[in-house]
Design a protein around this nucleic acid. Structure first.
Lengths: 216, 216
DNA sequence: TTTAAAATGTCACTTGGATGTCACTTTCTT
DNA sequence: AAGAAAGTGACATCCAAGTGACATTTTAAA
């Protein structure tokens, strides 16, 4: 099932029709908050996401609720937003279209993404490989046994290669479901354990801020 | 056997040669009516179909005689027909190529389609075989008796070979029709029963995340 | 319709690895 | 050099998955 998040009715009605023509199941939502709720219990195979929405910003929505779920996303942007978006793009897994766009082009992009999808999403940095679909980490092609929280944390870092991940962000993401107050040191300890198991130095500490993985 | 329906001789001769090179059996027909007759008694595994034909339209031919037979089809189109075709496309099972195209690309698409085809019927991992069409599971070619829910769960795992399937996802999929709240442990128990019946270790537990079947 | 067998869903219990925190040390920054 | 942030090793606790048994529901057979 596909998800379209778009508040412009002329666009959403049009796509609704085209998708039906092609026998695709398309769910349409026109605001951020409903989308968040929807994603709690649904896993669309692909999301088409407008950037400008009545109650928020598509990019933020993506960063906070979609990225981690690793759902392929196509952004819809007005031309003047183009600059903004390209920056945040996890190119390969995601794509964007500038309005106005042709349905044909949209379908072409969907095809491209779904084709890629069938391959595994693997992120490689130096001698460490993270297979997101399998949720397995390899060092020199040998699987490394990580616990679920270690995986979760490392995944966040890998999904943000070349970008600093704040400690607070990690705590938020990893423990959002529970109401527990988590000791700040816990994150430190996990980072230690991850480094220990991977025997690697790819995770850089930025003191006072967080951690970052660099690719060369 | 493959079927090419194309009236442009420079294309058909070229492909005839390429297919022979690759030891593929290719039947060539240059019009609609003969194709209809041919399909009454033959079932090519894939059809490459030109849209513009001397005595009719490839799309109509497809709609009326091919679609129902569920034969994978690649359309050949001139650029200005592109708009028309994309609409009718059963994306995934079918594909299209814009003329001029490279033989290499054509073969790539054929491969892709045939791969999907095979993948969707029988999936084999180690000594376990899952026939999706029949919905039967074999261990060393001996059918194993699974209940319907056990099958459903195993099917989801097999359709996601090499990918983690989250427990929540399993619950969603298996019980989407009912509104019942399902005990989380239920999934655990089913996994136990499946493993018991199959006497296999192909289902890997990823603690805190879900389950995964790996093909080697 | 009745009845037995099979399927399904839940419970209580176990277990070993996962998790979170502490007290302490080291490193970085100014 | 001092203070703050991050790293370390050890430890107590917890919890997710696994298990066997059982109650209930569905199905098919008599």
């Amino acid at each position: 099932m596909f998800l379209l998040v778009e508040d412009n009715e002329s666009i959403s009605k049009g796509l609704e029709y085209s998708f039906k023509q092609n026998k695709f199941d398309l769910k349409i939502i026109d605001n951020v908050s409903e989308t968040i709720v929807f994603l709690e219990t649904n896993n669309p195979e692909l999301i088409i996401l407008d950037i400008a929405l009545p109650d928020g910003n598509g990019l933020d929505l993506y960063e906070e609720y979609i990225k981690e779920k690793n759902i392929p996303t196509i952004f819809l942007t007005a031309i003047d937003e183009e600059e903004t978006i390209v920056k945040g793009l996890n190119i390969g897994a995601d794509d964007y279209l500038t309005k106005p766009f042709s349905t044909k082009e949209l379908f072409a992009r969907i095809n491209k993404i779904l084709r890629q999808r069938n391959k595994n999403t693997i992120i490689k940095v130096k001698d460490i490989k993270f297979d997101i679909d399998k949720m397995v980490v390899y060092k020199n092609d040998v699987p490394v046994e990580l616990t679920s929280l270690e995986l979760k944390i490392l995944q966040i870092l890998f999904l943000n290669v070349n970008r600093v991940v704040r400690r607070t962000f990690l705590i938020d993401k990893v423990y959002e479901w529970t109401g527990n107050d988590i000791n700040d040191n816990t994150i430190t300890v996990y980072l230690k354990r991850i480094r220990e198991k991977l025997k690697t130095d790819i995770i850089i500490t930025i003191k006072g801020i967080g951690y970052r993985i660099d690719e060369e």
